[in-house]
Nucleic acid binder design. Structure first.
Length: 426
RNA sequence: GGAGAGGUGGCUGAGUGGUCGAAAGCACCGGUCUUGAAAACCGGCGACGGUUUACCCCGUCCCAGGGUUCGAAUCCCUGCCUCUCCGCCA
């Protein structure tokens, strides 16, 4: 949510910034609502003040044994009027809140202009895509008889699921272990294990609701819960409705969770293989920081995700998302795109965002500045470190041999019982 | 699933219809004292919103949402959560 003061006092600047995303804020409608709100709130509060005064007078008169009938008569006339004003105000505030909850975050100044992913700007590139002396396969072909089974998953559940088995299942697990150990051991994150089902307040807090409900899997029945689309939701909401001390910050948390996405609206995209699944796993980095540190934290957090790729020896590039491609809640986002020989392209494997105070305001997540009295909003950030399914794909495709076997990257071998190669015919 | 108890400020915890936004303690902040610190003493100390240059003032908030009443932390209803006992269960 944006700062309501900013919406009132600098509506033009807000509108201009949002327009960069292609979001059109109806300035006039908002200004009209705001004017109504102001008038209605003032009269309502005046009525309330009068009611309170008279009620106190009744209490005193009663205590003194005086006649309270005249006072009762006066206050009874207020009742209907007040009830009316209160419910109108309530309704109006609800409408304004709904409107505010649907407005995306303001973009950081250095976010480049652009409409969609084609306008994202490359920042850096790491590693050289390997040149093969044979025609490299993609992970689907490589996994065909080696432990990636899409047909069985389709029978068990449906499309966009996979069954992994044997060494590939273990490699997938090894990746998770490796990433968790790296982030906890070298990057200073605390490992968290969190619920995979969340309530609507949490989803509103991170910005998945009210606008993106169709992307979620929602439970039927009495529980109004949804499957998490990312660990960002439960982990960030750890600080919802709390006031943190300055020395609690920064909070750096890492969690390995499954992620569930309906992928509504992406029918026909990436239908082959493991790139876009309804269920995948991810190691997620989340930071809760003091506002003045979020810019720097965004860079280091992205660096932590990059370190995973570097240690795995996977070529990648880092891009900054353009205005039109930056997510609803984000001020600024870097994507890491890993090289996939099977697609002959760089594909997203991590997304690292700075949300500023946008999520914090929705969550009422605050901290106390040691020199200032009032609680202030924290800043939140997160990034994939990394998406496991896609990392498995990247390892398979980048480390494949002509005979279809796959070398195990050195850093993963300890997690594979020392195995240096899998899917070997011999 | 059954029975019972309870959810009050950063924390503990009093408060069962009328100046209660709420006693007290802890924590925290300022001051006195001290070479310094501690202790002691004095004072301050909730959040959000409206109005305002500011002070003031006003409103809302005692889990959430409804209701009763001139007036609700206090009474009623619904939901959520916590604890205890029993049952069941990985």
């Amino acid at each position: 949510m944006l700062d309501p003061q900013l919406l009132r006092n600098d509506l033009d600047a807000v509108t201009r910034n949002l327009a960069r995303r292609g979001y059109q804020l109806d300035k006039q409608a908002f200004a009209d609502l705001e004017q109504q709100r102001k008038a209605l709130q003032v009269t309502t509060q005046e009525l309330q003040a009068k009611r309170n005064r008279l009620s106190r007078a009744i209490g005193q008169a009663k205590a003194n044994g005086e006649d309270i009938e005249p006072l009762l008569a006066e206050v009874s006339r207020l009742g209907e009027q007040l009830k009316q004003a209160e419910s109108e105000l309530h309704e109006l505030q609800g409408r304004m809140n709904d409107l505010a909850m649907g407005i995306p975050n303001l973009l950081a100044d250095d976010v480049p202009d652009g409409r969609d992913e084609d306008d994202n700007v490359e920042v850096t590139r790491w590693g050289e895509p390997r040149t093969f002396d044979f025609e490299p396969k993609d992970h689907v072909d490589l996994g065909e008889n080696a432990g990636l089974d899409f047909a069985t998953a389709a029978r068990i559940t449906g499309s966009r699921f996979v069954v992994m088995s044997g060494d590939l299942a273990r490699l997938h697990r090894a990746l998770a272990q490796f990433m968790l150990d790296l982030h906890t051991g070298e990057h200073g994150y605390t490992e968290m294990n969190v619920p995979f089902l969340v309530n609507d307040d949490s989803l509103r807090g991170t910005g998945n609701l009210p606008k993106f409900g169709e992307d979620l899997f929602r439970l039927e029945g009495d529980f109004g819960y949804s499957l998490i689309p990312t660990a960002e939701v439960p982990v960030t909401n750890i600080v919802r409705e709390s006031i943190l001390d300055a020395d609690d910050l920064p909070l750096k948390m890492v969690a390995h969770t499954p992620c569930f996405r309906s992928e509504a609206g992406s029918y026909g995209r990436d239908t082959r293989g493991m790139i876009r699944q309804h269920q995948f796993e991810k190691v997620e980095l989340v930071q809760i920081v003091q506002p003045e540190h979020s810019l720097a934290a965004h860079e280091t957090l992205t660096g932590h995700a990059e370190t995973v790729l570097q240690k795995l020896g996977l070529p990648y590039r880092k891009v900054i998302l353009c205005a039109g491609d930056t997510g609803f809640s984000s001020r600024k986002t870097y994507d890491l795109e890993v090289w996939l020989p099977g697609q002959n392209a760089y594909r997203e494997i991590s997304s690292c965002s700075n949300f500023g105070d946008f999520q914090a305001r929705r969550m009422k997540a605050r901290w106390r500045h040691p020199d200032r009295k009032k609680p202030e909003l924290v800043h939140t950030l997160n990034g994939s470190g990394l998406a496991l399914g896609r990392t498995l794909v990247a390892v398979m495709e980048n480390y494949q041999n002509a005979d279809g076997s796959i070398d195990v990257p050195a850093v993963l071998q300890p997690y594979m019982g020392g195995k240096a190669i899998i899917n070997s015919a011999t």
